[in-house]
Every structure is written in structure tokens, then in C-alpha cells.
């Protein structure tokens, strides 16, 4: 069985092999090291001319990639830790994300930025965060968050080869070692895919429900690695508490599409949003706001599970207390139904 890391690595190999406009840039990505998390392993051996190891200059690298994209190439940038997207904020927000619109649709910027996010590895306050909320809602960029469902590499490959606009590709670090679950192999869950009504969207949303279970009474909306934790929580809630849940998984965070979530909440009337980022003013806040705007009194109860609004400590037990885990999800669900 393939891991998420292998799936992403294979996608990068395929992208470089199938389109000579693809370049990969990043810090420490050359073999034998192959990148801090090994997602770029083997690329410099197979494609030495198009795999560029860079100085430790995140803003500069992303700006260079933006320039390359303006002239017909399709660069992919690895930011070693997602925490460092703070360093590229100006290049993303005031440059790459603006160009198509402000230059009146005369050009586009096909650049993909891969950003490993997330905690649970003891890296401490500046190497463990889930920071995509900083970029959520910025017009002109697409933010994708793969999970272990279906094929995360396929999503990356599509972004690299076919998306003409800047893409921020959020990779949770814990996901790397997780097996990719195909829909057919899943013994516990029935998984259906829904595509966005917006034709330019290509990242699917998934609906998971336990096979042969009664109608769900709660919707959980989530993305990224939290999907894995939610699956376990959903199983436990079903078998131990007879609470049945419709799990809605988004792989595109921005532009925002509430459709798959409200379709589910329309039936369950209860919505729990689960994310690894800090709670306040986060993704979950927008999900709840949109759901209420769309469904009003049809929503009986709503809640969020997220990180505490503090920095992420390095010490294992402290870190566990700050980040949301399976038990937090179970407790929150039990309070709702």
C-alpha cells in the first residue's frame, strides 16, 4: 500500500517526466538528502537540470518561481516548513495572487507551492503550526489540502500540470507516513465524491458514512490529517454511543465552497467543524458562518474543535493538550446529539 509521501513523490516525478516546463525549487531538496521530509527524493537524480536547490530565501525563491511562471514555465516550490509562509506572504499576496486580476486577465501565474504544516512531532512553536488560515480568503490563489483519501498525488499532479493560477498545497506532516486509502478498499466507510459546481474547481469533496449505518444525526466537516482522526472518532461514536455521523471532507479550502457541507447539514441539522489550526477566526468560523447564512434555523447546534489559541509547545504532553485529538472530537460530538 502506498503512503501519502510516496503518492506525492511519485506525482512530482510524473510531473517532471511529462512536462519539461516543470521545475522544482526548494531548500535541501537534492539527493542524497532529498528534502527535509523526502517528498522530493530522487528528483535531482532523475531530473538534475530541473531540480534546483536554493538558498534559504523563501520570499526570493517564490518570487523567482513567479517570474518563471510568467514566462511559460510551471515551477513547483517547496517551503521546508509551512510556518515559513510568513516569509513569502508579500510575494504571494501582493504579487503572484494579484497578477492575473490586476493585469486584466492578460496573463496567469501557474506556480505551485508545497507547504508541510502541522504539529505532533515535538518541533515546538515555530515548526508545528497550521498556518493556512493566513491565506484563506485571499483572492487569486487556490488552497488545496490533500488527505489520505483516494490519491493525494493525483491532486498535486493536476495542480502542477493544469492549474494556471497560484496554488498553495497544504501537506500535513503526519499524513506523509499514512497509507493512501482507496474508496474500494475501505471496509468501514462508504465514500462518495462530489465535484464542485464551479467548473474550474478540480479538487473533490468526500462524504464518508459507516456502511449499513442508520441515518446520520451529525455532520462533521474537516480536512487534512484531521480526516484520519475524525474517521476513528466516527467509528468509536457509532460502535460505543450509537451516534451516526456524516463526515464531509474538503480538499479545496479556497476559493471556499460550502455546498458539500450544507448538503449534509440539511439532513443532520447538527454541524461540528474540526481543524488543526487555532480556533479563533479560523476556517471553522467561516464554515459556521456560511452554514448559518444558508440554513438558518435548520441548524440546531454547531460547534468547533480546533487547537487552543496558544503557541504550540515542544514538550509532548503539552503539545497534546494544545492540539485537537480523537477524544476532543468524541466529547464535542457527544455534547451535540
Amino acid at each position: 500500500m502506498q503512503t501519502v509521501l510516496e503518492s506525492l513523490n511519485q506525482a512530482l516525478h510524473t510531473a517532471l517526466a511529462s512536462d519539461e516546463r516543470v521545475y522544482v525549487l526548494g531548500e535541501d531538496i537534492l539527493d542524497p538528502y532529498g528534502g527535509a521530509f523526502k517528498v522530493t527524493r530522487g528528483l535531482s537524480t532523475a531530473f538534475p537540470d530541473r531540480t534546483m536547490t536554493t538558498p534559504i530565501s523563501e520570499a526570493g525563491i517564490f518570487g523567482v518561481a513567479t517570474g518563471m511562471a510568467l514566462r511559460g514555465l510551471r515551477p513547483v516550490v517547496e517551503i521546508m516548513f509551512g510556518d515559513f509562509i510568513t516569509l513569502i506572504a508579500d510575494q504571494v499576496i501582493n504579487h503572484a495572487a494579484k497578477f492575473r486580476y490586476m493585469y486584466n486577465e492578460q496573463l496567469s501565474v501557474p506556480v505551485v507551492m508545497r507547504v508541510p504544516m502541522g504539529g505532533r512531532r515535538g518541533y515546538g512553536p515555530t515548526h508545528s503550526q497550521t498556518l493556512e488560515k493566513i491565506f484563506l480568503g485571499i483572492p487569486g490563489i487556490r488552497i488545496l489540502a490533500p488527505c489520505s483519501l483516494k490519491d493525494p498525488g493525483k491532486l498535486l499532479l493536476h495542480a502542477i500540470l493544469h492549474d494556471d493560477d497560484p496554488v498553495l498545497f497544504i501537506e500535513n506532516k503526519i499524513l506523509y507516513s499514512r497509507p493512501v486509502l482507496s474508496h474500494e478498499e475501505d471496509n468501514d466507510f462508504k465514500i462518495t465524491t462530489s465535484d464542485s459546481q464551479n467548473q474550474s474547481d478540480y479538487a473533490p469533496a468526500f462524504h464518508l458514512s459507516i456502511r449499513e449505518a442508520p441515518s446520520p444525526s451529525l455532520t462533521i466537516a474537516t480536512y487534512g490529517y484531521m480526516v484520519d482522526l475524525c474517521r476513528q472518532a466516527v467509528l468509536q461514536l457509532a460502535y460505543e454511543d450509537e451516534i451516526f455521523i456524516d463526515l464531509v471532507v474538503l480538499t479545496q479550502l479556497s476559493p471556499f465552497n460550502i455546498e458539500p457541507i450544507i448538503n449534509s447539514v440539511h439532513r443532520t441539522h447538527h454541524l461540528l467543524v474540526v481543524e488543526e489550526g487555532t480556533c479563533t477566526l479560523g476556517w471553522g468560523a467561516e464554515v459556521l458562518a456560511r452554514s448559518v447564512e444558508n440554513l438558518g434555523k435548520e441548524i440546531y447546534k454547531a460547534a468547533r474543535v480546533a487547537s487552543l489559541d496558544v503557541a504550540i509547545p515542544a514538550s509532548g504532553p503539552l503539545e497534546s493538550a494544545v492540539l485537537p485529538d480523537i477524544d476532543d472530537i468524541i466529547q464535542a460530538a457527544k455534547k451535540m446529539v
Binding site: 520570499a59 518570487g63 518563471m68 511562471a69 510568467l70 514555465l73
Partner: peptide, 10 residues
């Protein structure tokens, strides 16, 4: 400045 550099490289 990085964008000009990237353009030149491309």
C-alpha cells in the same frame, strides 16, 4: 526583484 530574476532565468 526576484520576479525579474525568475523571468530572466526562464
Amino acid at each position: 526583484s526576484p520576479i525579474g530574476t525568475g523571468i530572466a532565468l526562464a
